[in-house]
Simulated scan of single mutants.
Amino acid sequence: MSKLPYKRIHIVINPASGKDEPILNVINDVFHQYEDIDWTISITRKFGDATEQAREAAQGGADLVAGYGGDGTQHEIANGILGTSAVMGVLPGGTGNGFATELQTPKTLRPAVELLCTGGQIRHIDVVKLGEEYFIQRLYVGIEPEEQTSRADKDKYGTFAYAINAYKQATDKKQKEFDYHVVMDGQEYNFTCAKMYVVNAAMSGTGISVTGKVSKPDDGLLEVFVLSTKNMETLSAAADRALNLNTKAANELIWQCKEITIDTDPDQPVWTDGEHTRRTPITVQVVPGALPVLVPDVEKA
């Protein structure tokens, strides 16, 4: 059943996102057709602003809060509205827009704003608790800031920048390996590897899932896998999953759990939804169905 149109909508705009388009013109043009909707906007200047602005809007009575930006912006919006009665909307403004791709929300701005006005259905997405914050897509351990995909590469190559950077890292024989001590749902594991991934929503902006068909963002489970340049089977398994190949390695070298503790020697950087947030050790737990997100109505699709 379709959700009736929302009466109070707030949009948080990240002007530093990866797209160059007339954001305000499009938003104003669409909302001008729906005079009964009370809509407001706010603009971010730094990391953390979107969370604060989303929370203020939700607590101030907005029944839908949407973020224009990439996956980092969507991460902040989710953290802002969790625990309130507001629904989250997604306006794709980043380079990759993996979260929008995951939920099959419109990939361009105008139809995405139209969805906010006309309504769709609510999908209750899992979130993952880390300390006092949450992430909605992925956590990874072992990637130093200088190894991240640069803004310059994103501007130059678009979504292909992520694939290019991933290939460089996977084939870098000089990458250091570390000892990981991991506890998943009470069971202990030890790995020697370069990187570890904890996945809630697996889809990238290129339309490739990092876990193949294993992950769903509303199944109450996390998927975990490791990458090691000294163990080519871990790399081939990851490639097989991305290509949806049903191989033995692809199925065996991935684990599912609801809670995971990760410790490393030495401590390693931790990234959540593309942002460097802390270092190991960490413990995360999935919170099933905690985030209501507006998505297209499948009955209308």
Rank of each mutant, 00 (worst) to 15 (best):
P145Y: 05
L139R: 03
R278T: 11
E252N: 11
Y68P: 00
V293Y: 03
A54I: 09
V141I: 13
L116H: 03
V199S: 03
F178Y: 13
I81Y: 07
P5M: 10
H124I: 04
I43T: 12
Q137V: 04
K156V: 11
K176H: 08
K176L: 14
E177R: 05
P22M: 05
I13V: 07
K176R: 13
Q104C: 12
D219L: 10
W255E: 15
A161W: 01
K129M: 06
I143H: 00
I37M: 04
I27Q: 12
V298P: 13
M196I: 09
V214W: 08
V298Y: 03
E52K: 00
D126L: 07
V90I: 06
E146M: 01
G119N: 04
G220P: 10
T51W: 13
Y180L: 06
T247H: 03
E56F: 09
E233C: 02
S17Q: 10
K3M: 13
G72R: 11
V224T: 15
P145K: 08
T101S: 08
M184S: 02
S215H: 09
K46G: 06
G274K: 10
I43L: 02
N244R: 07
F225M: 07
P288Y: 08
T234H: 14
N165G: 02
G94P: 10
L243E: 13
A290M: 14
D71M: 11
T105R: 04
L245I: 11
V295D: 00
V284A: 09
E133T: 13
T95H: 13
I254H: 03
V12D: 03
G48Y: 04
E223F: 07
L291T: 15
V287C: 15
K7D: 11
E52A: 06
Q33V: 10
N165I: 04
R241W: 14
L235W: 01
A201N: 12
I143D: 00
A62H: 01
E146G: 00
E177K: 02
I37A: 03
P292R: 05
T211I: 11
M203H: 00
A66C: 05
E177S: 08
W255G: 04
L103I: 14
L103Q: 08
T51A: 05
D273S: 06
G205V: 13
L116N: 09
Y68Q: 08
H276N: 07
Y157H: 14
Y34M: 09
P106N: 15
I11P: 00
G186T: 05
V90D: 00
P266E: 05
V270F: 15
P111Y: 01
T101Q: 03
E35K: 12
K46H: 10
G220M: 13
Q59E: 13
T229A: 10
S17M: 09
D153H: 07
F225W: 02
R55S: 03
L221A: 07
M232P: 00
E144T: 08
L82Y: 09
T206V: 14
I164K: 07
E132Y: 06
D219R: 07
E188P: 05
H10Q: 08
